[in-house]
């Protein structure tokens, strides 16, 4: 092999190394932040942040961005609980086929550090293709769209569940 091709291979090796590093970072980019919390500001401020969120969400298919509620409950079985207010603000909990216990106790799926929560406060569980919410005898009550929950009631996509200072939204 000639000297020039060897030099090219030598530099090519360094380029290949960096190609691996940069493409690994490219794969990571979508996964760097678990959730993006945008404070709901006033007027113009809000539009600006939304625009940025859209721009950041479009480039990769991995980050299919923001979806708000209001879809039919049967559309998707895979769902998320998104905590929009309270000490766990910004957390999302992917829902599978198992029930989710919410409360202060360490054994709960979602552990909320809040004096206004009971240790086993409420439960979200799947039933016949949709999600249900049930209060477990909490002291300060569970509210679904400002209605107090006692017996199990259906939890539709986009509904807001309040317990103590925490608000949780069901998303697709």
């Amino acid at each position: 092999m000639s000297q020039i091709s060897i030099t090219l291979l030598r530099l090519g090796f360094l380029i290949l190394l960096w190609a691996l590093v940069l493409s690994a970072i490219g794969v990571l980019r979508a996964d760097l932040y678990g959730t993006r919390v945008t404070s709901r500001g006033k007027g113009m401020n809000r539009r600006k942040t939304d625009g940025r969120a859209d721009k950041m969400a479009t480039p990769s298919r991995a980050s299919t961005g923001i979806r708000t509620g209001g879809m039919s409950p049967r559309e998707s079985t895979a769902a998320h609980l998104a905590v929009t207010a309270g000490p766990l603000k910004g957390t999302t909990i992917p829902l599978g086929s198992a029930p989710v216990m919410i409360g202060r106790a360490a054994t709960c799926t979602v552990v909320i550090e809040d004096d206004y929560c009971s240790s086993r406060h409420c439960r979200v569980y799947p039933d016949g293709g949709q999600w249900m919410v049930e209060d477990l005898g909490s002291t300060n009550g569970t509210f679904l769209s400002n209605q107090r929950v006692d017996d199990p009631v259906p939890f539709h996509l986009g509904d807001k569940l309040s317990l103590g200072a925490t608000t949780i939204e069901l998303r697709s």
Partner: peptide, 16 residues
């Protein structure tokens, strides 16, 4: 209140 946008974890292993 705040808007929480979750970024989905890409599930496939094609990138690997």
């Amino acid at each position: 209140m705040a808007t929480v946008a979750e970024i989905r974890v890409h599930q496939g292993r094609r990138s690997e």
